[in-house]
Nucleic acid binder design. Structure first.
Lengths: 279, 279
DNA sequence: CCAATTAAGTAGTTTTATTACATTTTTGAC
DNA sequence: GTCAAAAATGTAATAAAACTACTTAATTGG
């Protein structure tokens, strides 16, 4: 299992100090790399030996080795800079680069998938009285896609890409409801507000966003998707693809959880389209 | 430039000791990672400060930082995926299958990409007075995604996911306009009608759909995406992902075609979001 | 060949990481 | 609840590693 995934997945069974460390590393993985053990220990609020023991527990030989592993991990999950696109590329080159970057982004998303959170999210969606999806900008289309998939189930699903409607909907949530907030960066203030409102109402708030971001912190459950494409100009939004695939996983797992009784319903959904088709 | 490549490329213009170091690092990159500076210096036959200076010359902050960079480099070049799904939980198996299917779908889309059609589509979008995007159901979110990307350019873009509005918009197209119709199956009657209406108006009609389908036949230009997910019940819509990536390629190629003057506009688009962000 | 310049080394200093041991906290039996 | 055992965490000293200032050697261009 990848280091970051291991951190997330084993967090529950670890001690208090170790959880603090995990939280910090997940939130600022890059920062850890150029931080000496003393400063990290101080920042997290634990002692140096605790950090060292933690590194060993994670399978490293010590703190420096832990940093090396983390560096490898991060490098791998970040599509390499050589993949940026330059002017003068023919369409086929552009295509090759974009497909490659997308493959890499998918691998990264797969390796970093937090199954614990995923299972919990499936539970939440399964038990929800109603599901509300919120996204803005590019994430609005992700939300819409998710809605389309979730419509096949028997839980009412609504999607909002209008911040006023989002607020109204979020303010009206009940405890049995489930709110899904989508954002690449996790830094869009409006969505962070929505997540907070959802939690204030007692609803289960799921974030499909960058780990460690403001939105991630505001959500009860986080399905992590590294952002990262906000920097380059021409680079496509590969993490959006990762989000969509995670939604696929989420919905498919949910379908399985709903059980075979639901196969009929899915068949009916499909059948409903027959009249719209030509040959 | 990547670190290893830089090592190789600059070897000629470096001093004797540095060349010895480069040779050693290129020969045993992995070994360097768990070697302290003293041992490395001894192994290469130079002094410790020489190693340190060398690391700085390579752009690192010092020896430890050099190792971190090297670790990232190596991680990236190592066969990336170790498809290790351990736990017997449902979610990880579902995830593995879906990611695999998505990879396959991407490969297929890449291999079947018609660059001629792609270039023509880019030309059409480049020259268009206005762009209209139409999609229904799951394709509506694809259309919305495309719109979000195209909004950065200076051509007016509208998206319709309502069949009445689609018809009104399609009926009002002019010769200089471009209509993009999106559908997995290419068999949705409503969208086929829209494409025909668009052609009747003299607009350039681009179809992002299954090759050979009714919609494909109705369009002037076809960007082919194999459907195929209509059969299985639980299988996710992987071809939607392929469509999105093709849109990435289309838009990126268009951006390059628009030229460097457009970099400013893209930057402005990005900058416009600054006010919406939190830390 | 000899200043000027650059490269490399030595030795000492500082920073960083680790170890051994002490203290606190948690756990589980009664 | 109380107490002992075990686990977790912290303190302080030690060891390891990296870096700096300075010296010596090598290289280069006149």
């Amino acid at each position: 299992m990848s280091l970051m995934a291991e951190l997330r997945n084993t967090e529950a069974r670890r001690s208090k100090s170790e959880r603090k460390l995990i939280d910090y590393v997940l939130a600022n993985p890059e920062a850890v790399l150029n931080t000496p053990i003393a400063r990290l220990a101080a920042a997290v609020g634990v002692s140096e030996p605790t950090v060292n023991r933690f590194c060993r527990a994670m399978g490293a030989q010590g703190f420096p080795d832990f940093k090396l592993r983390l560096a490898g991990e991060l490098a791998r999950s970040r599509p390499s800079m050589t993949r940026d696109i330059e002017v003068g590329d023919a369409a086929s080159h552009v295509a090759a680069k974009i497909f490659e970057a997308t493959h890499a982004s998918l691998d990264s998303a797969h390796n970093n998938l937090d199954y614990k959170a995923l299972e919990k999210a499936v539970d939440a969606l399964h038990d929800a009285r109603a599901i509300v999806l919120c996204g803005l900008g590019a994430s609005a289309s992700v939300a819409q896609d998710a809605q389309h998939k979730l419509l096949r189930f028997d839980t009412p699903v609504t999607t909002h890409s209008d911040i006023i409607n989002q607020r109204v909907a979020a303010a009206g949530l009940a405890e049995q409801d489930c709110l899904v907030c989508i954002s690449y960066t996790g830094r869009t203030r409006a969505i962070v507000d929505i997540a907070r409102m959802g939690r204030d109402c007692g609803a289960t708030v799921i974030g499909l966003t960058a780990p460690g971001s403001a939105l991630a912190r505001a959500c009860e459950l986080v399905l992590a998707v590294e952002g990262g494409e906000d920097t380059e100009l021409y680079t496509p939004m590969t993490s959006r693809i990762a989000q969509l695939v995670i939604i696929d996983v989420l919905v498919t797992t949910l379908a399985l959880r709903k059980g075979s009784a639901f196969a009929d319903r899915l068949r009916a959904a499909k059948h409903s389209l027959a009249g719209t088709r030509v040959r």
